[in-house]
Design a protein around this nucleic acid. Structure first.
Lengths: 204, 204
DNA sequence: TGGCATACTGATAATACGAACAGTACAATA
DNA sequence: TATTGTACTGTTCGTATTATCAGTATGCCA
């Protein structure tokens, strides 16, 4: 979404979501005011205009309850492919790598993931990423230093913390038993950036 | 759904769905009439009453656009409350503890969670549960030894691994800096069981 | 220090909308 | 053949809802 919300604006947005989930209708200005504790309906109006200006909702003028939530307007979850063992040399999202799909609501993570990767091994255990965890990955060819990335080294795909220096890059594991990997900046292929984690202790 | 729809009723229902998908609002009687080609708003009214009687929609009387689609109302995901700082002495799910809600698809975790708890502190860091993580909790008054539980000790709510012995229980942190807590079995209050974890590195 | 955004109160006017009533026509069914 | 349900037209009335104007207070930034 466009710009950031103030606390109050976020609360009003939640209030609209609640109402929609609850009654199937968007609230009126008066209802927002009541639920938020405003004395005046115009307070709600002001917030709505702010939310529209920032791109979170669309207001249909002169229509009652004419508040359209923009994020969740078109279905509110994506079926994301779960990539497991990545066959050597194949593109990470190749069909043969996809094990299953998992529904992930939009907005569950700040950054919208492109796919999920089932973690193998415990090289990132100190970063709280365990064997078997699903990590949500946003496809990207670039990343900033300090981010956890999915990188390709030769034929292998690995999850590490990226450390960028002047001329080269280091892929940093989060486990004392593993060694950092130094790669010349021009040989580093980044597949994506870590944007979320899902763990199910009962899985498998 | 209850009973079968006539052709016209089905068309009106589709019309409502379209409107909702399109504008985020349910249509008014007049809009239905226009889109269906009726000359009278009452034609739409009649169809709506029929649809309500047959259980497909719910009409909220005296509210504009007060048409609630019942089938897809909850879809295949639940809006789970996120519980943060738990006020001392209050029930964990009390309204004052709920910060926001997050959509979680059914089936994302093997066990269906009741609510989400925003983790505070790092006492479970070695179990890969970090400060700020959302853990999915299934409400339960019992748990098995070895499970990660949400337990109440006095006024405080805490997340620990449960170890059950003959006559007492131990709440085991996953961090060397913290001490295990021994509780007589009859004083232990279990709030719920850990059934999943969601982490957003970009949150906050 | 002035300007601007947020965060409201309070009131009025205009209009969007639903409810209700009185009809007509037609097909199914008992 | 009478009854009931569907499928409408057309109109009126009251209220639900939005829009807008006029203020106040506060914090932030240049």
């Amino acid at each position: 979404m466009s710009s950031k919300l103030t606390l109050r604006q976020q609360q009003v947005l939640d209030c609209i979501r609640d109402s929609q989930a609850d009654t199937g209708m968007a609230p009126t200005r008066a209802e927002i005011a009541e639920r938020m504790g405003f004395q005046s309906k115009n307070a709600a109006s002001d917030h709505l205009r702010a939310l529209e200006r920032k791109g979170y909702i669309r207001l249909h003028s002169d229509r009652s309850r004419g508040i359209q939530l923009l994020e969740s307007a078109l279905g509110d979850e994506d079926e994301l492919p779960v990539v497991g063992k990545v066959a050597a040399g194949t593109p990470i999202e190749a069909v043969e790598n996809v094990q299953r799909t998992v529904p992930v609501p939009r907005g569950l993570f700040r950054q919208r993931p492109t796919y999920l990767l089932q973690v193998q091994g415990d090289s990132m255990i100190d970063a709280g990423i365990f064997d078997g965890d699903l990590i949500a990955v946003r496809k990207s060819e670039t990343a900033r230093s300090g981010e956890i990335v999915v990188a390709r080294i030769g034929e292998e795909v690995t999850v590490k913390t990226l450390r960028l220096n002047k001329s080269d890059a280091t892929l940093l594991p989060a486990n004392e038993d593993y060694e950092p990997i130094q790669v010349p900046a021009d040989q580093l292929i980044i597949e994506g950036v870590f944007v979320g984690l899902i763990r199910d202790p009962n899985a498998h």
